[in-house]
Amino acid sequence: MAVWLWASLLGVVPVLRAAESAAVRVTQAADAFVRTLNESQRRGVQFEFNDAAQRTRWSNLPVSMAKRAGLRLGDLTAEQRAAAMNLLRAALSERGYEKILGIVQSDEVLRRQGNSTVPFGQDEFFISFMGKPSVSAPWMLQFGGHHLALNLTMAGDQGVLTPSLIAVQPAMFEWNGKTVRPMGRETDKALALVQSLDATQRKAAVLAFEMRDLALGPGHDGETIAPEGVQVATFSAAQRQLLLELVAEWSGIIHDAAAQRKLKEIESKLDQTWFAWSGPLEAGKAYFRVQGPTLIIEYAPQRLGGDVTMHIHSMVRDPTNDYGKQFLP
């Protein structure tokens, strides 16, 4: 009782409650999804927690070029599909869910444009579990397809969403009469940050060479490159805030309890964090990287015919805890 009282006074209990409720909420949503499945589908969605092949079976490429496993959304009934999306909603923050939904919708826009034999669209996304959904034991939820790979590892009240590939094409489109930019906030925040740098900082931050792609995209698990650019240790308080708001576009995709914990960790290591920029000082036209001891974010516009601002690849990694390796016994 005394411990509980002290914990309450210190503000620990509300955090624990929020974290616990997230673990319970996600597991309940996973269970609800499984209950809608038939026996064959239950086998199809489930993989062993230590299935190394499934763990790395993700890509930026369309599903016809890089095969995914698990259940394909297009093969689910309306009820099953709604339960799958409800699980994603439970596992992610509101803004994170909105971003992922936007990426799925952008692929549907690609499909509706036609002119391609490649299977695009909102049916071409896959969901799978590694390990049984649990409020205490480690398990993984994978969701992805073309331009999207979410690897969410949960262990009780802890959760990590790395490595994850967040990409989009087209980066801006109309959906039900509204303009959607799934990666619009990070694009604009990055420009605001680089524009906030003084001449000395900018000289250090802007790389004198082209970064035409991600350095640590799919297939580069476990690698860490040397940081480059400007050290955040030189940033003012306002610039640090801009950087944290930019980082939160990736770290905040996961549900709020885990996102808050991750952002605090990143904030505590800001002096060891670097920011690099390659390309023009224009929104969506340049590569940038944020790299700290527990974080690597890369953003790489793709020059694959047409407007580079309409096709963006990005990766978020935690070199110390990808796939929740810290959670494992």
Binding site: G114, N115, R212, L304
Partner: peptide, 18 residues
């Protein structure tokens, strides 16, 4: 540009050496 496949979602005419 109009004729280019909208499925041009990955590198076609370049060889990436990383």
């Amino acid at each position: 540009w109009i004729a280019a496949p909208t499925g041009w979602t990955h590198r076609l005419d370049e060889c990436l050496q990383a």
